[in-house]
């Protein structure tokens, strides 16, 4: 059994840290793990995707259409963009935050409405939370990624809260540890 998770968002939102936390948590649990990231040009405000796969034996580091069990999204439009990568009935955990892409800023497109309903119609289960407000509540708007990881942790029942905390302790800089722990907690309870 392999669990396949896509972490999507807008370049600069912290998907690399989120994938690092999930990858490490899975590895500490004794799973084989593969994580695939994108660096370089697409990081500059573009749509970014990170794949995390864990299980007894993982071969491919990437996820195809119909291959994802979960999508964690830092931005609503990005969650919708990748919905066809989900298995039917797969779970989306998304921030309700909306960031206008350049075509919307340039006035050639509009930010779509009713995205949560559209994702549900497409066959996905959607768990949308206001991760940005919760992150601000924790002390930094940049901690949305950790809030969402907290929320997502509820779906991965075999990794305990203590195990997640341990990974956060070893992945984030000490001076931001308390803030990140709070962000994770707020995500769990959202």
């Amino acid at each position: 059994m392999v669990t396949s998770v896509m972490i999507v968002g807008v370049g600069g939102q912290g998907s690399l840290l989120a994938s690092k936390i999930l990858g490490k948590a899975a590895m500490d649990k004794g799973y084989d793990v593969k994580v695939s990231e994108v660096h370089g040009m697409s990081q500059r405000g573009g749509s970014v995707v990170t794949y995390v796969r864990f299980g007894d034996k993982v071969n491919s580091p990437i996820i195809d259409k119909g291959g994802a069990d979960y999508i964690i999204s830092f931005e609503l439009l990005e969650a919708a963009r990748y919905v066809e990568f989900l298995k039917p009935g797969g779970q989306i955990v998304t921030s309700s935050q909306q960031i206008d892409p350049m075509p919307v800023i340039a006035g050639t497109a509009e930010y779509p409405t009713g995205l949560i309903e559209k994702m549900e119609e497409a066959g996905a289960k959607v768990d949308a939370i206001d991760a940005l407000s919760l992150a601000e509540q924790a002390g930094s708007s940049k901690a949305s990624n950790i809030v969402l990881m907290g929320r997502f942790s509820k779906y991965i029942t075999d990794i305990s809260r203590e195990e997640w905390d341990k990974v956060i302790e070893t992945t984030v800089p000490p001076k931001f540890l308390e803030m990140n722990k709070k962000a994770f907690e707020l995500g769990v309870n959202a």
Binding site: R44, G45, G66, L77, P101, P112
Partner: peptide, 20 residues
């Protein structure tokens, strides 16, 4: 055989990379 998947949502605006 192809894996079954959720349906895609058509007509979404793209998000190309941009200067920061």
């Amino acid at each position: 055989p192809e894996a079954p998947s959720c349906k895609g949502i058509a007509g979404l605006p793209g998000r190309p990379p941009a200067m920061c």
